Computed example of a mutant assay.
Amino acid sequence: MKRIMILCLGLMLVIMACGPTLKVSSDVNKNVSFSNYKTYAIYTGKGMISQLNRDRITNAVIAQMNAKGYTQVNDTSSADLLVNANTIAKEGQSVTANTDYFGYGGFYRPYYWGGGMGMASSNTTFNVDKYIDGSLIIDVVDRAKRELLWEGIGNSQIDGPVKDPDTAIPKAVAKVMSSLPAR
């Protein structure tokens, strides 16, 4: 469990690597006109990441919201939108099996053609790989109605830290928030 917590602290460093392994999906309420919203506030939830990475994510979210024409306010009770970024990490495993056939001939594999009984054999090898699956979830909520308007999710397998998180995190947040409608 301690190992998982240590890996979770480094979760965002790996998820934020804007490489081909970052899978992004999003969903939007198509019945809402985002031009009616002007202001937003960051609503900080709880996540299993360090304060440094939480600050990097928050600053990247602020930059993306500002680039889309929204204005940040510090008071969550006066903002039109609340924006929240959370992280999730879970342990997973994949199992693969590889079977080698010995004694079978050419095109007829795995069938035995010719020879006597007991001349064919096989060997199956099983490999179990454990990994950490991490997700960054960004929600945009109508503050007055308490209604989810947009959600973006970035998902990646974690296998090691990123060399430059100050560059990687903003790129990944931009990729996750790319489908958020502008004002």
Rank of each mutant, 00 (worst) to 15 (best):
Y108Q: 08
K23R: 13
N59F: 04
N84I: 10
T58F: 00
G103E: 08
N98E: 06
K46I: 11
L22N: 02
G134H: 03
R56K: 14
A85M: 03
V83L: 06
W113N: 15
A60P: 00
G116C: 02
M117V: 14
N86S: 12
K90M: 14
I57M: 11
N123Q: 13
Q51M: 10
S122L: 09
N74G: 15
R54W: 01
N59T: 05
G103C: 08
G118L: 07
N98A: 12
R56F: 06
D27M: 04
F107M: 14
L52C: 10
S25G: 11
F126H: 09
T96S: 14
P20V: 02
S25M: 07
N127W: 03
S33Q: 06
Q93K: 14
S122N: 13
I62K: 15
N29I: 00
G92W: 01
T39C: 05
G103T: 04
T87F: 09
G103R: 10
G106A: 14
R56L: 14
V28Y: 00
Q93F: 09
P110L: 05
Q72Y: 05
F126I: 15
N84R: 14
K38E: 14
D133G: 06
G45H: 02
N59V: 03
M65N: 04
G47N: 10
G105L: 15
